[in-house]
Design a protein around this nucleic acid. Structure first.
Length: 134
DNA sequence: GCCAACGTTGGC
DNA sequence: GCCAACGTTGGC
């Protein structure tokens, strides 16, 4: 199983929106690198939900329930369907991630504009640790 | 194919 | 509101 992180501005589409939608397509990715990551996602993969701009924190974990299919709004890009898996007890903030020497290689820091990125097993475990610590 | 101009993302 | 990073566009 692989791990990922996807960003959304919570005033546009937040964790609570997904929670009330149940299963929903992840829309509006218009970057080829991000799209390629979406194409690599498999059913059952887990995905950190990051609130960008407002909050700047990982709020929970989603699960991929449908693998990539063409975006009807622009067939050059794709959608995946996701659902909420588990809400964090406390969000893991960007500040916490930046302050952790073990997470300096994470895409969230290295490629701050990328909205869909892979997360290594180590990074995944460290972030779950940070959730417990706070 | 290069690169300047421009637009977007997202942290601060 | 500013700006750094970086992707895209279009002229040549």
């Amino acid at each position: 199983m692989a791990y990922w992180l996807m960003k959304s501005e919570p005033n546009v589409y937040s964790w609570d929106h997904l929670k009330s939608d149940g299963v929903a397509p992840w829309t509006d990715v218009r970057n080829y690198q991000a799209r390629n990551h979406m194409k690599a996602m498999k059913k059952g993969d887990l995905v950190f939900f990051y609130h960008s701009n407002i909050g700047r924190e990982i709020v929970g974990v989603m699960e991929v329930v449908r693998e990539h299919y063409p975006d009807p709004a622009d067939p050059r890009f794709v959608l995946v369907d996701v659902k909420c898996h588990r809400l964090f007890k406390t969000p893991v903030t960007l500040a916490m991630i930046k302050a952790d020497p073990r997470l300096q290689g994470i895409g969230l820091i290295r490629q701050s504009r990328l909205s869909v990125m892979p997360i290594t097993d180590d990074e995944w475990r460290i972030i779950l640790d940070l959730e417990q610590i706070k």
